[in-house]
């Protein structure tokens, strides 16, 4: 059977490309779409550096036959930053020196994004469980777990600021007196 045309919504853009039979989603992202953040580590689902979000859930993109998910929504690390601004998880990784060699970072961040989407206030144990499919070859898990907890705290703070701003707007018809300018805007952008 010949290659097939596959449609995916990747980072909120509609993308169409050809895939030979049995092509993993990872290969399509890298080779057809030029999205190089997700890495090919083991190609066995053991290392997690190819993790992307498929319809909102983290998956090992090396284990997804791309023809079988035609029409799905995919989010990669390239779709995390908005308007050139790093999001809370990226900022926390950068400032907490959690990237280390960088090979696992794309997968770690996508796993963390999925965790925080579902659980804004995870315990350390919940973070450790969430990233248990992501191997850090530097063995530097401490800073990574710290960064994810830090990102969760940053995001909760921003969300609280955004809620305050909305409350003020609802009560007074203006949002001009938000307590922390900038952060509330970022949170609102993320939720839109």
């Amino acid at each position: 059977m010949a290659s097939q045309v596959v449609n995916l919504r990747v980072n909120e853009r509609s993308r169409e490309f050809l895939a030979a039979p049995g092509t993993p989603l990872l290969s399509s992202l890298r080779d057809a779409l030029g999205l190089m953040a997700a890495k090919r580590g083991c190609a066995q689902g053991s290392c997690g550096t190819c993790t992307v979000l498929l319809d909102g859930r983290p998956v090992m993109s090396c284990l997804v036959a791309v023809e079988t998910v035609d029409g799905a929504s995919v989010r990669t690390l390239e779709g995390v930053a908005r308007g050139g601004d790093l999001d809370e998880v990226q900022s926390a990784f950068l400032e907490g020196f959690a990237t280390q060699c960088g090979f696992c970072t794309a997968g770690m961040i996508m796993t963390a994004e999925a965790l925080l989407d579902r659980n804004p206030d995870p315990t350390r144990a919940e973070v450790v469980e969430a990233i248990s499919g992501n191997v850090c070859r530097c063995t530097g898990y401490g800073p990574i777990v710290d960064a994810i907890l830090d990102a969760a705290a940053r995001r909760r703070k921003e969300d609280a600021a955004a809620r305050r701003k909305e409350d003020i707007a609802a009560r007074w018809g203006t949002a001009d007196i938000a307590a922390t300018p900038g952060t509330a805007d970022a949170a609102a952008r993320r939720r839109s």
Partner: peptide, 20 residues
Amino acid sequence: GTVVMAQVNSGSLGSPEIVS
């Protein structure tokens, strides 16, 4: 696909055709 695609990637799948 956690087993079958791993075999695809390692070239060890015993069949040329996959039924998802």
